[in-house]
């Protein structure tokens, strides 16, 4: 499969979405990312049983943090997909990129440029 997905996405590989940390996501925003999403396994399919549920809770927590910082909470999301679903991976990448483009550059970056 030669699936196309936006080139602006930087992928950080983790052994499990449960390994994702608030700090990983925060640092991305600090360093200028316009959006961050976590791609985890389908619910119920976690090799470590609950890793993807934990990831979702962290993402939800971070949404609250972003709101408190005056940054759109939609800039961070959690998606579930199977590793066998290449097309879904590409589709999510396109959709999320489109959504972030709609939101525009991160307010963190905008101020820096100004």
């Amino acid at each position: 499969m030669r699936l196309q997905y936006p080139t602006n996405i930087k992928i950080i590989q983790l052994p499990c979405s449960g390994r994702v940390d608030i700090l990983h996501m925060l640092k991305s925003f600090e360093d200028g990312a316009d959006g961050v999403y976590v791609a985890g396994c389908m619910e119920g399919d976690c090799h470590f049983l609950t890793g993807n549920f934990k990831a979702r809770r962290k993402v939800n927590y971070l949404k609250g943090v972003l709101a408190a910082l005056g940054i759109e909470p939609e800039r961070v999301e959690m998606f579930n997909m199977s590793s066998a679903e290449g097309p879904r991976f590409a589709q999510v990448a396109r959709e999320f990129t489109a959504k972030i483009k709609e939101l525009g550059p991160s307010p963190v970056k905008k101020a820096k440029a100004a």
Binding site: L23, L26, L69, G70
Partner: peptide
């Protein structure tokens, strides 16, 4: 140490955002 990192990062983001 972990929470120091998180809070400090949040504060840095807030400050960057405010220019």
């Amino acid at each position: 140490e972990k929470e120091v990192g998180i809070l400090a990062t949040m504060l840095r983001i807030a400050r960057k955002k405010a220019g």
